[in-house]
Amino acid sequence: MLDDGTPLFAQIAERLADLIAEGALAEGERVPSTNELAAYHRINPATAAKGINVLADDGLLEKRRGIGMFVASGARERLLAERRKRFAERYVQPMVSEAQRLGFDTDVLVELIREAGHAQEGARP
């Protein structure tokens, strides 16, 4: 599950964030403990704690004294909003700029996106 390209703590944080965004970890739900994450991924507990703390510092997790870390209220929506913004900045804005350079108007670009979406839907099993 973990790969070599990114620091382990960042991978732990990203995986937990993915679970929150997907709804697999619901608001108010307890997240795995530092020791549970460390044992599962065979990493140092301090590394797991650092990953958890990244999300806590971002307000996505909250500590409940004596019982652990839990998904904060509104965490999923905040994550999705940030990811939508990042998606627009990384993909949509550059695509629109390139389409303008190629002389596509908005209608042509929208139709190309629809066609690509239909092709993807047809390719699904």
Rank of each mutant, 00 (worst) to 15 (best):
R64H: 10
D57K: 11
A21Q: 08
A99E: 05
G117S: 08
I20K: 02
A72C: 04
L2V: 15
N44A: 10
R78T: 07
S97W: 09
V92K: 09
V96N: 08
P94F: 09
L8V: 15
E89M: 04
G51T: 13
E14M: 05
E36K: 07
A99G: 04
E14W: 03
M1G: 08
L19E: 05
Q100C: 12
A99F: 07
I52T: 02
D18F: 15
H118I: 14
L2K: 05
R65L: 06
T47F: 02
L80K: 10
Y40W: 13
R114W: 07
Y40I: 07
A72W: 01
L8D: 12
E121Y: 05
T6H: 06
G28R: 01
K63A: 09
Q93W: 15
L25S: 03
A88P: 07
A13E: 08
V96K: 10
Q93C: 13
L109Q: 14
A26N: 03
Y91P: 02
K50M: 00
S97M: 04
E98H: 07
R83C: 04
Y91A: 10
Q100E: 04
V110E: 07
R15H: 12
L61E: 03
I20E: 00
E36W: 05
F70E: 06
H41K: 11
L109A: 08
R42A: 05
D107Q: 13
L19Y: 05
F87M: 02
Q100I: 08
L60N: 03
R65T: 00
I20F: 11
I12R: 00
L16H: 03
R65M: 11
A24T: 15
R42Y: 08
E36D: 04
V108F: 13
D3C: 13
I43R: 01
G23W: 06
V92Y: 13
L37D: 00
N53L: 11
A39F: 11
R124S: 07
H41C: 05
D18L: 15
E98I: 02
V96Y: 13
I52R: 00
G5C: 15
N53D: 14
H41D: 07
Q93M: 09
K50Y: 06
M95E: 14
A119S: 14
G23K: 04
G122W: 04
L60W: 02
V31G: 00
V92H: 12
E121F: 07
A116R: 11
G117A: 06
E29Q: 14
I20W: 09
F104R: 05
E89K: 02
M1Q: 07
N35C: 14
G68C: 06
I43T: 12
A24H: 14
A116I: 10
A72Q: 03
G59K: 03
V96S: 06
